[in-house]
Design a protein around this nucleic acid. Structure first.
Lengths: 254, 254
DNA sequence: CGAGCACAAATTGTCTGACAATTAAAAAAT
DNA sequence: ATTTTTTAATTGTCAGACAATTTGTGCTCG
């Protein structure tokens, strides 16, 4: 049976949309195999190239994967948290870099989220969670640690903290936010030379979660938030006066 | 200058990745024009089809748009919140439908987020925010309203509530969560026939935000959360016993 | 001189047909 | 029975062509 397409939009878009619907609606089960490209071409009455472009659109969204060879083809992906997180992080990064989102807004959303996780984290943290946090704390207390590694460990600590809430969706959303902000955070930490203060706050946070003291954890998180926000403000300020703005002519790819 | 590609992965993936890097890193400015497909084909030393598949991958992620005709081509998109939200909602829906995320986890993450917005909302709500919430409240109090419209208004109320926090990132993330959960929430509300209770809680929330009473707002939100969670549990339970599970044979697309 | 109009040029969208690369299954050989 | 070879199916890539669309250009006519 041939499926009708309207001729007003590009075929590859319509085909991608049709298949996507089949997937999202559950009509096509996870790991189910799509018809071969030739079959799809016949079904939609278009050329194989057009079908391929449609499939590439879906592959870019991690909705399908392809495999060569006999009994190969396109299969419906079970979307993983890792993939979802990567997509979200890309989007968040783009929003941060090319839209009008300023550092303060991003910072506020991140710490608001993290703050919200604390109550859950205090109630549910396991020994494994605490061990992970403790490990990162010890890494961070090494004065010989490079700036880069310190930042990585910082991310690891916050991630462990959120993971302690044991809600994968919250972990997912927050991890993406943190990842998108990391480059900027790195620069701030580099220039701020503020390891001692951060380490101290982390230690306090750790202790509060260990003892299930949600109130203490929250006030500490607020302190950390305002401290980082302050550093960020200074950093952005210094940057604004130091380096001239990138003048905005269109440029081609080199 | 030709750009080298390794022959181990598919070319279209590598090309898409290379261009994506140029965009995310800011090397290609927003609204900047990419070279034509023929030029890119020459630059990467591949055929035009391969370049096209790469571009379709980017288009599927809303990173570029294309335009036909003279002085047409592919242009770097300024990603909008609307697009970002749509992408996030799709991902969230997929995670919800085909992964092992249960209703309680989704519900918890949503209300945790919303709870976290309340403090900001109380501090920053404008008259316009209050008016929007009030409007939805009045809609909801009409007993002749259809179930569908009631649910839509419910979403509108919560959206207005989060928007009152005036942090676009939080609005974005939460809106996507809410949208992904809406189908399920609808069914729950349909069966629960629980309008009066919900309306009451909404009214209390509205009043608390109007008077900037963050404490009251938070306790009310907690009540709402546990009420919905309770309804959801009953609903899921009833569903599990009533309808048999979709048996899992692989199926082809029809 | 201006307004409209035909035409050319550039660019993406699609089609056709072909071949290469890869993989699983079937067939053949040992 | 096990290993090797062949075969078939499928995606990945290529080349060339034409269609559709849009913009600019120059020409004609008022």
């Amino acid at each position: 049976m041939k499926t009708k397409l309207v001729s007003e939009k590009d075929y590859s878009i319509q085909i991608a949309h049709a298949i996507k619907e089949s997937i999202v609606s559950g009509h096509l089960p996870v790991d189910g195999r799509l018809p071969s490209e030739s079959d799809l071409a016949a079904k939609f009455d278009v050329s194989r190239s057009t079908v391929r472009e449609a499939l590439k659109r879906l592959a870019a969204q991690n909705l399908i994967r392809t495999q060569r060879g006999a009994s190969g083809g396109a299969f419906v992906n079970r979307i993983s948290f890792a993939q979802a997180q990567e997509q979200l992080a890309t989007t968040a990064t783009l929003l941060l870099t090319m839209n009008e989102i300023d550092f303060e807004t991003a910072c506020e959303s991140r710490f608001t989220l993290e703050h919200a996780c604390l109550a859950l984290a205090c109630a549910r943290r396991t020994d494994a969670d605490l061990a992970t946090m403790k490990l990162e704390l010890e890494k961070q207390s090494d004065p010989l640690l490079s700036d880069e590694s310190f930042c990585a460990s910082d991310v690891g600590f916050h991630r462990a903290l959120v993971d302690a809430a044991h809600n994968p969706i919250l972990s997912w959303q927050l991890a993406a936010s943190v990842e998108a902000m990391q480059p900027l955070m790195n620069m701030i930490t580099y220039t701020g030379r503020s390891r001692a203060r951060i380490l101290d706050l982390h230690g306090t946070l750790y202790a509060a979660i260990r003892t299930e003291d949600a109130v203490k954890a929250k006030t500490t998180m607020d302190d950390l938030a305002s401290y980082i926000l302050d550093l960020g403000r200074k950093f952005v300020l210094g940057r604004a006066t130091a380096s001239p703005r990138n003048s905005g002519g269109r440029s081609q790819m080199t």
